[in-house]
């Protein structure tokens, strides 16, 4: 279990992490989601004890990372954004070094290394220099290092960046498997990834936690509106005249595409009202053909965009 208490990190005048407060329960996969520069990596670096916080504390299974680093770090395996690999070492040498550094007893060392190699499928390259490995394999070596000795908590900072689609699926499966027996925290700015893999999502923007819930609940949170997108062969003024007669519409946006005779309209309505039929007949009466009409619910992507943009408007 990890408790993050009122965490603040300042770089000069820039507030990278802004009073962050959350608790991570054991045995689940957590996703840190946020745009670039939101403070995900900084938070992870503080949680793993790589850098200190300006204010606040992190408790790992009850041990403060600042006051009892030795005890707290025992429970953590960490894969930073750039895997910390020594290019002049062989994979197997590197893992041996990592095992020694983590203080794994010499009796269990060989077993732990074999386990990590098996899990990350590194058999074929274990005798090669890390320098000569591809990006995907390097990422896996970094991952092997993080899971070495099977710590309770595994923290992965953007584990799938730079991998090919097949490798991404492999790593996702691996993370899901790890999630069965461990607490996994991963960060990403890719939505699909987090929604597929994680049990729980935390959206961070400008160093603040803006939302944290399960993927389903987050979608439900935004389901109070429905969006309609239309493509109509008419100009903006004529469409406006028709739409003005609809009381149900909350918001309308117009855009003109490449084809000037067409107008794209985005309509937002309350979730329980369907105005599609009414729209169809009114446009038909006025001899304005509708080329396209689609109804979309808010997706996780919209939630993400809305939550991370709201903050910007506040400023």
């Amino acid at each position: 279990m990890i408790e993050v208490k009122n965490l603040v990190k300042k770089y000069g005048n820039h507030l990278a992490v802004d009073h962050l407060d959350f608790t991570i329960e054991p045995g689940k996969i957590y996703g840190f989601l946020g745009p670039n520069g939101a403070g995900k990596s900084t938070t992870m670096n503080i949680m793993t004890g790589y850098i200190g916080a300006t204010e606040g504390d992190v408790l790992i299974n009850g041990h403060s990372i600042v006051e009892e680093p030795k005890e707290a770090k025992k429970y953590i395996g960490y894969l930073p954004e750039i895997p910390p690999l020594y290019m002049d070492m062989k994979v197997i040498e590197y893992l041996k070094f990592a095992a020694e550094l983590k203080g794994i007893e010499s009796g269990k060392k060989a077993k732990a290394i074999t386990e990590a190699i098996e899990l990350t499928k590194l058999h074929d390259v274990s005798d090669r220099l890390i320098k000569n490995l591809s990006k995907g394999y390097r990422q896996r070596v970094g991952l092997a290092q993080a899971v070495l000795g099977m710590p309770d908590i595994i923290i992965l900072d953007e584990p799938t960046v730079g991998l090919d689609p097949k490798q991404i699926i492999e790593i996702r499966d691996l993370i899901k498997n790890l999630g069965k027996n461990h607490t996994v925290i991963l960060s990403s700015h890719i939505l699909q990834e987090v929604s597929v893999v994680c049990d729980y999502i935390m959206i961070i923007s400008h160093g603040k936690l803006v939302a944290s819930d399960t993927p389903d609940n987050l979608e439900k949170l935004m389901e109070n509106t429905t969006k309609l997108s239309l493509k109509v062969k008419a100009d903006k003024n004529n469409i406006e005249n028709i739409l003005n007669s609809f009381d149900e519409i909350e918001n309308v946006e117009y855009t003109t595409g490449r084809d000037e005779t067409m107008t794209d309209v985005n309509i937002t309505t309350p979730v329980d009202i369907d105005i599609r039929e009414k729209l169809f007949y009114s446009f038909a009466e006025n001899k304005m053909p509708i080329y396209e009409m689609t109804s979309t619910k808010m997706t996780l992507e919209d939630v993400f965009l809305e939550l991370t943009q709201e903050k910007k408007e506040d400023e």
Binding site: G49, Y50, P69, P80, P84, Y86, A98, L101, G103
Partner: peptide, 13 residues
């Protein structure tokens, strides 16, 4: 090369 991350996040002081 950011390899110091593995050192400072390990148990060693």
């Amino acid at each position: 090369s950011k390899t110091d991350q593995i050192l400072y996040t390990s148990k060693s002081s």
